[in-house]
Design a binder for these strands. Structure first.
Lengths: 258, 258
DNA sequence: GATCATAGTCGTCTGCCTGACGATAAACAC
DNA sequence: GTGTTTATCGTCAGGCAGACGACTATGATC
């Protein structure tokens, strides 16, 4: 903010609180999982929610999202505009949620961000290991689909976080179709099979290993050989790859019909 | 906002102003055009800017965008969630811009929205006909591409509106690939040729009329015959169509290689 | 050590879609 | 009528995706 200019008449606009909320996704044990934290205070005390927090006075939105991510998970996101060499997570703005009643305390506009991260050893809580976890999105979004069974219904997320999560998952599902973003779920070096399992977990479908292999190895710039092999998945040793320079896949990966 | 809950400690967060900015696009005379308004006061007095304004205290973000749209153009947008029967424009959230220095007066977070509208008789200004116009986006974004010639350089848009406009145009370009949104640029009844000219204007390419015709008439749910013909484009009479129920095109329209 | 299970990799075949383009049809202008 | 414009139908070849067979290379098990 530049000074030396007459400020707005404070009565001309209502004051808002602006927050960032994070949809942090990863693939663990063949399932797409989201990071959720337990709320320690009202409203929605004890319920699970997406991580997030206030944007500071002199902080960009993306910077606020990256800061919250680091504070709550220890993950470092690289700016997509300037991808860092280190293995940071992918971070992008998702959408903004500003229903006047989304927070009962006051008017809060939340700029949601989407983070795609490789599977991590442990979701290092910011001190409290019991208040943060990876939850399968299928479980979190269960009551959205079909009829909710009354018994053992996982509590809905706080605020409008169910909707934010659903939007983030949908964004991830569609974005791995036409971009190389699925590699953001993988470690720096990975096999074709591991990449395929990412697609299968995110889309919730089974893919033909042979056609998948032909497709990803045939798309120029998607994968570059890293030079070694691994047997960490069992079976015949698989070639290791690194993410190539291409970000947009043309033609795209095809999500099988429903 | 629900009352009866302790409000936030006002010192716990910085106050923001929240605005909506609109990227309103249409196709006029074979060119993709955006709605811009002339700023009457500093900063950026006299410069062109995207229409927009403050979000009110009890107003949803989409409602604020629709209100600003109606105030500045007389257009009515239908909520994509509940598409009205009338010929309203398509409105969707685009992205949120919150750089601390984007407005020199104070911290303003702007939630940009994208509006796609059919060609309108005249951009009815909100009383001041000289302060609002349709400008070809090619002209508005000219200095972004290539080297800017010093002479006769169109003034850049105010604030970060160049970037917002570029993002909106890119969203429109990519979204007509895989959705039926191009029909939002057409009147309620239109011909295949008119729809093709929309694609050509938005993408800035020439398309083969025969292959385009085969593609759009062969995609189920994209177009439904309206029953008549028209010669308003000259030449042989063309069948009139209405937008079909399909919103997602599968397989998508293919934008020719660059 | 033979066998089995697992996963990876290479090929083949067929159908569909697309791009290139020829040909015909129906209006208007002269 | 002739030419021009736009619309619409058809044909053909190339490319890609889905289905699926075949082979390879490892670890596990007997």
């Amino acid at each position: 903010m530049i000074t030396g200019m007459p400020p707005y008449d404070p009565s001309a606009f209502p004051p808002f609180a602006v927050t960032v909320d994070l949809v942090v996704l990863t693939v663990r044990r063949h399932a797409l999982c989201a990071l959720v934290v337990r709320r320690g205070e009202p409203p929605f005390q004890g319920r699970w929610a997406l991580p997030g927090g206030f944007v500071r006075a002199d902080e960009d939105l993306a910077a606020a999202a990256a800061r919250e991510l680091a504070e709550e998970t220890g993950l470092y996101a690289h700016d997509p505009a300037a991808p860092a060499p280190g293995n940071g997570a992918h971070l992008e703005q998702l959408a903004t949620y500003g229903d006047p009643e989304r927070d009962p305390r006051m008017r809060v506009v939340s700029v949601a961000h989407l983070v795609l991260a490789p599977d991590l050893p442990a979701p290092r809580a910011g001190g409290d290991a019991n208040s943060v976890r990876w939850a399968p999105v299928e479980e979190l979004l269960k009551k959205e689909n079909g009829l909710a069974r009354e018994e053992e219904q996982p509590a809905q997320l706080a605020f409008d976080h169910d909707r934010i999560l659903a939007d983030g998952v949908e964004r991830a599902r569609s974005k791995i179709e036409y971009s190389s973003l699925a590699t953001a779920f993988c470690p720096p070096e990975f096999t074709v099979g591991e990449l395929r399992r990412v697609y299968e977990a995110v889309w919730g479908v089974a893919l033909d290993p042979r056609n998948f292999h032909r497709k990803v190895t045939g798309t120029p710039g998607f994968l570059v050989p890293a030079g070694g092999t691994t047997t960490r998945q069992g079976g015949r040793p698989a070639q290791l790859f690194r993410a190539g320079g291409a970000t947009l896949l043309n033609p795209p990966m095809l999500r099988p019909e429903v």
